[in-house]
């Protein structure tokens, strides 16, 4: 990890001092453990702060939107897929982007780690190739990284960047062995009434802070539908109808675009599993139109395309 972080810093310094890019977007170490945050390095000195660890959960593609000038982005598989998405959606040109590609080791869910130490404060987490050494006052424990992965990293299909101008470290293996189809499967077995109860159970803690929307690199509309007041599509209360409307429409707006990067779940302060909705759509798009978002530049987004023989058995 540290070796890769060092290489990222070197690459960033080189790019900035040569004047190839105006900003390098990467991660910096958080003020508390397990909270790495997005960092913008504008000068070679600032590039010293860049880091790389198991807690780089934000999707950096978000910060390329509506940013003038040339930018370099530290990108693992999912971030690079979102960058491809944004290029396909004409948000910026490929030439304005320099991708510092990294093979994703699979990111760790800080909640899962914290849950193993209830009531204790973790003061330090040391990275080892397959383990995490978690330290706090009066305890020290070695965790297997795979056991505390974020759930979307377990079902990852693309760990290596799809596009990269420079690869840091080796091109690694793909996948972590999870099956994304299984995320939606438990609900699909239920009858409608039970599904509704399950969804209410999943969403009941939502406080409508829109952190999921703000962390999502797909949500770049100038005015989001939840902020529209006339007509008001979605009320601003925590009423079940409003919460459900928000989550259903948010998931639907990601149809054919969501790369399952997990930024929404990582950003949620309440730990809501909204991937249950988005992964269902991801699965449907794959089954109906054979499309995986963000895999190649120039691919047409499936929802702005049609074929005469599209499935239509739901139409009478």
């Amino acid at each position: 990890m540290e070796a890769i972080a060092q290489k990222i810093r070197e690459a960033a310094k080189r790019l900035l001092s040569e004047g190839k890019v105006d900003v390098v977007i990467g991660y910096a170490k958080g003020t508390v453990p397990m909270r790495e945050y997005p960092y913008f390095a504008y000068t070679p000195e600032e590039a010293e702060n860049l880091t790389w660890s198991s807690f780089c959960c934000n999707n950096l593609a978000l910060y390329t939107i509506r940013r003038p000038g040339r930018m370099a982005v530290v990108a693992q598989g999912c971030v690079s897929r979102n960058l491809v998405n944004l290029i396909n959606e004409n948000q910026f040109k490929r030439d304005d982007l320099y991708v510092i590609g990294v093979n994703s080791p699979g990111m760790v869910d800080r909640r899962k780690v914290q849950a193993l130490f209830p009531g204790k404060t973790i003061t330090e987490v040391i990275e080892e190739p397959e383990h995490l050494l978690v330290k706090g006052q009066g305890f020290e424990e070695r965790l297997e990284r795979k056991k505390v992965f974020r759930s979307n990293c377990l079902t990852c299909v693309q760990r290596n960047p799809v596009i990269s101008d420079e690869m840091i470290g080796e091109v690694g293996p793909e996948g972590h062995g999870g099956n994304i189809d299984k995320v939606a499967a438990p609900w699909e077995k239920l009858v409608p009434a039970e599904r509704w109860t399950e969804m209410q159970e999943t969403l009941k803690d939502c406080i409508r802070c829109y952190a999921c929307r703000d962390a999502c690199p797909l949500c770049y509309c100038h005015v989001c539908f939840v902020d529209e007041a006339q007509p008001q599509w979605c009320g601003k209360t925590q009423d079940e109808a409003d919460v459900a409307t928000f989550h259903i429409l948010r998931a639907f707006h990601c149809a054919g675009r969501c790369t399952d990067c997990g930024a929404c779940e990582s950003a949620c302060p309440q730990g809501i599993k909204m991937r249950r909705l988005t992964s269902k759509i991801e699965k449907d798009i794959r089954a109906l139109y054979g499309y995986r978002p963000g895999m190649e530049i120039g691919a047409q987004p499936p929802m702005s395309l049609f074929k005469p023989n599209d499935p239509q058995d739901f139409i009478k």
Binding site: E188, P192, G256, P311
Partner: peptide, 13 residues
Amino acid sequence: FAVLKNLLEYVGI
């Protein structure tokens, strides 16, 4: 609507 109908059925409509 192919996608939307699937989603709404999935959440329990």
